[in-house]
Write a protein that binds this DNA or RNA. Structure first.
Lengths: 131, 131
DNA sequence: TATTTATATAAGGATTTAAGAATATATTTA
DNA sequence: TAAATATATTCTTAAATCCTTATATAAATA
C-alpha cells in the first residue's frame, strides 16, 4: 500500500533483462549459472538483476551446496497487483503523501479559474446571441 | 503478449512521479494545469510524463477548448496484468525471443555439468560410507 | 590448508532518464 | 490579426542505470 514499494516493484519488472529472468523463473527454479548459460549473459549481470528482484520480494533464493537456486514468488506478484489496485482505490485524504495535494484541491484555485473562464465564455456567447 | 510492450508499461508505472499522476487520474480526470497545480510540479514535467503513460496506452486524452483532460484507461491496466500473466504461462518454445535459449536448454550443458557434479559427489559419499 | 566451483560485490565507463529552462504549437478571444 | 491561455516539444545538465571487468565471499573437496 506504500507508493515507494509499488513503483519499485514495477520498476524491477519494467526492464528487459529482468523480465526475461522472471519469465525463465516462471518455468521453474534455476541457479545463477543456468540462467547465465541459457540466457547467454555474464554471471554478474544475472546476479545483479536477481538481487534487484529479490530486494522487491519477487523471487526467492535457495542455497544447495555451491548453487543458489532462484524461484518466482508467484504470491508476491499477485499481492503486488492487489496492492496496486487497492492503492488506486484508496481515498486521497488517507494517503499521507497527498496531504498537501488535498489541501490544494480543497482551495480549488485551478478548478475555480477554469470554471470562471468557462462561465465567462458562456456568458459572452449568450450575450452575443442576444444581440 | 509482446515482451517489449510489457516491460515498457511496467517501466511507465515504475517511476514515482508517474505513479503519483496515475493515482491522481484514478480519482477522476484532470487537465494538465490542474495536475501541475495540485501536484506542485512544473507543467512540462507533467506533460512529459503524461506522454510516456499515453504512449503505453495507459491514459487517454480529451481536448476541451484550451484544456486537455487526461483520464485513466482502467481497462488497459487490467489488460496489462492479464497479458503479463499469460506471458508467464506461455510455453518458452512458442516465444521467438527464447528460441536460442530453448536450444541451449535442450543441450542441457549446464544441467548436465551440475548433475554430473552432484552424482560424483553422491558417489564419493557412498564410497566413503562403504569404507 | 590450498584449491576449485559458484555466486556476490565493487569499480568503471557508456547510455538512459528525469527535471528545469526556453521555445513552439494549438485554441480561443479581442 | 494580435494577444492570451494551455499544452507540447526541445535542449541541457545532473543523476541513475546497465553492463563489463576485476575482485571478494562462500561452500566443497583434495
Amino acid at each position: 500500500m506504500d507508493k515507494k514499494k509499488l513503483y519499485r516493484a514495477f520498476k524491477a519488472i519494467g526492464e528487459p533483462t529482468r523480465l526475461k529472468i522472471v519469465k525463465m523463473l516462471a518455468q521453474g527454479s534455476f541457479c545463477v549459472c543456468e540462467l547465465s548459460e541459457y540466457l547467454d549473459m555474464l554471471q554478474p549481470r544475472i546476479s545483479q538483476h536477481l538481487k534487484i528482484l529479490k530486494d522487491e520480494g519477487l523471487v526467492r533464493e535457495n542455497r544447495e551446496s555451491y548453487w543458489v537456486y532462484y524461484s518466482l514468488d508467484k504470491e508476491a506478484f499477485h499481492r503486488l497487483w492487489h496492492d496496486f489496485m487497492a492503492y488506486l482505490d484508496t481515498d486521497l485524504k488517507t494517503l499521507g503523501e497527498f496531504e498537501e495535494v488535498v489541501k490544494r484541491m480543497e482551495n480549488k484555485v485551478c478548478n475555480q479559474r477554469i470554471r470562471d473562464t468557462k462561465i465567462k465564455k458562456m456568458q459572452n456567447k449568450l450575450s452575443g446571441e442576444q444581440n
